[in-house]
């Protein structure tokens, strides 16, 4: 299987992908994401981008949540 990797932030709104790697994220945030089941291998959907370069909205396991773009850029996803 070939991997098409890019950061979560580069995706167009509305796309669903699977998480390849979460790296270099603040440990508190990483724990919070894990609490919501946002882990490597999980499907995630980019719902929307907030105003003034604000947070982006994501959906994972049916749960909606928002994180900042800086952090989203450190989530590497697999387009395939």
């Amino acid at each position: 299987m070939t991997l098409h990797l890019c950061s979560l932030l580069q995706l167009p709104t509305g796309s669903t992908v699977s998480i390849h790697k979460i790296e270099g994220i603040n440990p508190i945030l990483r724990r919070r994401l894990a609490d919501l089941g946002v882990l490597e291998g999980v499907r995630i959907r980019l719902k929307g981008k907030g105003p003034f370069l604000g947070p982006i909205t994501l959906e994972c396991n049916g749960q909606l949540f928002a994180i900042r773009r800086k952090e989203a850029s450190r989530i590497e996803v697999n387009l395939a």
């Binding site: 508190i28 945030l29 749960q63 949540f65 900042r68």
Partner: peptide, 11 residues
């Protein structure tokens, strides 16, 4: 000191 942000959006 930098801050972190994550929020759950309930239905």
């Amino acid at each position: 000191e930098s801050s972190v942000f994550m929020i759950e959006l309930p239905p």
